[in-house]
Design a protein around this nucleic acid. Structure first.
Lengths: 211, 211
DNA sequence: GTATGTGTTAAACGTACGTTTTAATTATGT
DNA sequence: ACATAATTAAAACGTACGTTTAACACATAC
């Protein structure tokens, strides 16, 4: 029987297992079993396990970065017209909000967000190379926009603060899974808009503070 | 010939390779080769690969947490005597400063810091279970002290802001390795004291901001 | 000197891995 | 309908893994 969506089923299963267990701890057999697909299908459709990882990343990262870059460009263009410097908060929002909103779209997207968080945690890994190649243009644009928005900061300080902020984001991208050490009275499933604001309150204050 | 420091040599090699390549991507053979030790020595001295990982973590984490907890208790005791509430900055410093200072002590400690950063990035992993068991008392104490220092924040907001701050820290613990995307004019090797202050400027502002 | 315990070594164990091969099956084009 | 290409299926490939075994070396103690 023919399954025309074999590739998508493999991608979904791989996305889930890579994000849950990591690349090296996930076997092709566990992926193909979950996808109810023959073992050889991965090498037939993708060529190798590494190429599968790259396909998993690119499938969602490129569209996400298009949204982020689109919002950033729109913000910069509007600020050109009104001749006002865009605020740090609005710049960061173009990066953060599409990221956290993606997670709301379903369990699959949630897997991907967690996977990105894991990738950022393996600086020397194969996935990091793939990831960086698809992030660099957006990152340069973001850094440049923030430099204009925060002219009082040295490049050194700005560089580290951007990493502090994105480090926070990558951490909570991973942490959102159900986990121990959640004290009572804490709701781990907040609405996206409220959570974005909660995050931006923190990050923007840290970015803008004068030492 | 007898090598009385076989265990330490294994621990050093494992620490280095686990932090560089991750637990699953590191083989016992690569560890024992680097340690110039027989393959069977790991299972003889530690019992298993998992037990080796636990030994690697505990060797440095327990002493580090003793320092952190000691500084925190000292701060709380001094504030009791002077009847002043300790500042958020000083509380966070007891956690951050020993961490970043450890990295200055040599390449081995730098490996460990990177390993902790990786562990924090694998929420479901074996290492996370080991790590959490050794972190929970300190984390509870830290959270409690911050709640006193920042009475205006809801438990919800405080919880997330602590995670934002520690997420930043865990990110830079990993990022300190030489890496691409470091723009010109940025010194990635700052003195520890300056870097601690740079981080605390950011984190404290984010913790204390009133929305 | 012999016995005992600790540590080391080389070799092999069984298992699981990513990948490849070959054949069968299904879809497509004329 | 038939020929050709694309996909799926089962099986096997060689390799690397964590672990175990059994022989060996070298202490210290009697």
């Amino acid at each position: 029987m023919s399954q025309p969506d074999t590739k998508q089923r493999i991608l979904n299963a791989a996305e889930h297992l890579f994000s849950r267990d990591g690349y090296h701890a996930t076997s092709l057999r566990s992926i193909t079993t979950m996808a109810t697909v023959n073992l050889a299908a991965v090498n037939y459709h993708f060529g190798s396990k590494e190429a599968l990882l790259e396909a998993v990343i690119i499938r969602r990262l490129d569209p996400l970065n298009e949204i982020r870059l689109g919002q950033l460009e729109a913000l910069l263009k509007k600020s050109e017209e009104t001749e006002e410097v865009p605020t740090c908060r609005n710049i960061l929002r173009t990066f953060v909000e599409p990221t956290l909103r993606l997670r709301q779209q379903g369990a699959d997207a949630e897997d991907f967000i967690a996977l990105i968080g894991r990738i950022l945690a393996e600086p020397r890994g194969l996935a990091m190379t793939i990831f960086m190649a698809h992030m660099e243009p957006l990152m340069n644009r973001l850094f440049q926009a923030l430099a204009v928005s925060l002219p009082g900061l040295s490049r050194q300080t700005l560089f580290w603060r951007v990493h502090f902020a994105l480090g926070s984001l990558s951490h909570i991208m991973r942490y959102h899974e159900r986990h121990a050490m959640v004290p009572e009275g804490v709701n781990i499933d907040m609405p996206v808009d409220a959570f974005v604001d909660l995050f931006l309150d923190f990050a923007v204050a840290g970015m803008e503070v004068t030492q």
